[in-house]
């Protein structure tokens, strides 16, 4: 597929042009198996994500969607199989893991902003201490992305002073400040009041338009229809069905998928 440039903001800002990276495959999971004790939570996961793709992962709770996502930046380890991110295979090597994590942004269901730091400090912490960016420059980057998620005026506030939707947008900006190659979203709108879901989804759509490689665990089917290149349906720890949004919603193949969609698309 074609990779779009920074089309929404249209600025020459600090965003790195995604075309400069040379790996066509962003994420490659091969035969990944994971157990929590005796519980087989991920079973033979094979998933290859190309650069610029937007994957939406859905499925019933307990199906292993979040666990799969968290394997990509090794917040979870696995017992069997291989995960390669941007050409780097994840091993036990902590240095390597940190290097991969700094290229992979993550947004959590519960935002997980650092409550003792201001919005601006939340955004500059990692660029300064992981990238070694000078503070002034890091702040410029942070302002750029706060503007992009449309809350530049909240920079001096603490997370507790913001609404849920604003907090989640700060969390997105915080991840973007590391100028990641890949963004992971773990149910980013599930903890939000209904009124705030849209502002977060709009931000994510904007990001998708810019050609960001995204993996999104979500039940926002409207979002999936609008931006996903592929939809992954998971159940009991395995990938049950993968297809493009149009056929996925109009003509699901597997019985489990049909049952799931009939439950959530009323």
């Amino acid at each position: 597929m074609t990779i779009m440039t920074d089309s929404v903001s249209g600025t020459s800002g600090p965003a790195r042009d995604i075309r400069t990276t040379n790996n066509a495959v962003a994420i490659d999971m091969v035969g990944v198996n994971k157990w929590f004790g005796a519980f087989h939570v991920l079973r033979d996961i094979d998933l290859r994500v190309m650069r610029g793709e937007r994957i939406v992962i859905c499925g019933p709770s307990g199906s292993g969607k979040s666990t799969l996502l968290r394997c990509i930046n090794r917040l979870e380890s696995w017992q069997r199989g291989r995960v390669t991110v941007d050409g780097v295979e994840l091993t036990e090597d902590l240095k390597l893991i940190d290097a991969v994590r700094s290229e992979v942004g993550m947004v959590f269901q519960q935002f997980n902003l650092f409550p003792h730091l201001t919005v601006l400090e939340n955004c500059t912490l990692a660029p300064i201490w992981v990238r070694g960016m000078p503070r002034k420059e890091a702040e410029a980057v942070a302002h750029h992305y706060l503007e992009r998620v449309r809350i530049p005026e909240q920079a001096a506030k603490y997370p507790a002073q913001l609404s849920g939707g604003q907090q989640q947008r700060v969390a997105i900006a915080r991840a973007l400040c590391m100028q990641p190659k890949i963004m992971l979203f773990d149910e980013p709108t599930s903890a939000l009041d209904p009124e705030m879901v849209k502002e977060v989804l709009d931000t994510m759509v904007g990001l998708a338009m810019d050609g960001m490689t995204m993996l999104v665990v979500s039940h926002e089917m409207g979002f999936a229809r609008q931006v996903a290149t592929r939809v992954v349906f998971m159940d009991v720890g395995q990938i049950v069905e993968v297809s493009e949004p149009e056929p996925f919603f109009s003509n699901p193949q597997h019985e489990r998928t049909k049952a799931f969609l009939s439950q959530i698309l009323r």
């Binding site: 930046n73 290229e103 959590f108 997980n112 912490l125 201490w129 992981v130 915080r174 590391m178």
Partner: peptide, 27 residues
Amino acid sequence: IPRGQYEAAMALGLGYWRMMTFVILPQ
């Protein structure tokens, strides 16, 4: 300190000592 704080810090690529120094210990 909730697990999410550790995870958010790790996901940003902060190593153990930076995570402790800037995120976990201050709180």
